[in-house]
Amino acid sequence: MGFIWFWIVAVMLAAYVVLDGFDLGVGILHSLLARSEPERQIMLRSIGPVWDGNEVWLLAGGGTLYFAFPALYASAFSGFYLALMIVLWLLILRGASIELRMHIDDGLWRSFFDGLFFFSSLLLAVFFGAALANVIRGVPLREDGYFFLPLWTDWRVGPQPGILDWYTVIGGVVALVALAIHGALYLAVKTEGDLQARVRTFVRRSWIVLLAITVISLIATIAVRADTLTNYYAYPVAFVIPVAVLGSLGGILYFCRREADRNAFASSCAYLSTMLVGAAVSLYPRLLPSSNDLGHDITVQNSISGPYALRVGLAWWAFGMVLAIVYFVVTYRMFRGKVNLDGGGYGH
């Protein structure tokens, strides 16, 4: 049961990263790549009808985490207190800036929300990357299962790390670059003409940065946590995952060069998913490892809910997911195709 719920939560959070990831990417890029108000509107409209539904994966995934592993939820959310609160503020600002921008046709009003949208999307990407890196690095768990991390200490990966140290900042940069490229590839699918050409150029130029930072982050992870590869050595078949990461990275560049935008976007989805799956494989069965010598890891076994709740949960979860997937198919089909400004709204 623990194994199943570990992967349920992992898949829901991965779905969040892949889906809301391109919303964040569009947020990072729209101030950089759009050259005119109509272009900015096209970029916003590409995510307008879907961003809120994408964000629901975070809420549903968080709720499921709470339900399946309450002890982890309690420990991690209170221990990363400040970072989580900042993430909440950024989510508020991001959502508000997408929606409120369009309400008043005024240059200053729109510029204000453009700035806010850029700032909040960029920092969210960095914080999410750093969050994952924190989980991989581990935290100074006490005997009672709690910890508390300040935002930063001396930026070193020591026994008393901060939420931000050199390693987690690398995680943040990986997320920033990866989500910017992910957003660009989504835009390549949803736009035409000059704007489309510009986002493709962005991907081709920044790809090498993503390759470099990905490799750096993999090496840094092995350096920071010697036990990263334990599960991989135990089940060598898992080495398929890092190969798939590199393969999908290659796919991004290959398909983008050939202007096969859908395939390039799919490669980017695969890249994000395999990175996350790779991290999950290396963690299991730990959920939040200890960074000190006390060894009070939070694991699937010591944080999981009771068996009755989990059995019932499996039934409604499966039913709910079928419904959710139907809604997503309906929505994305409804708003499929290239975005244009004719007819206003989301009329394509």
Partner: peptide
């Protein structure tokens, strides 16, 4: 949360799965 998650985590997770997906899709 630690002590009661096994009970009230259930309705909270169900809210996300059964309500928020429905609302966000059909409001669009």
């Amino acid at each position: 949360s630690r002590t009661t998650g096994g009970v009230i985590g259930q309705p909270l997770a169900m809210e996300g799965v059964f309500s928020f997906f429905l609302e966000s899709a059909f409001l669009g």
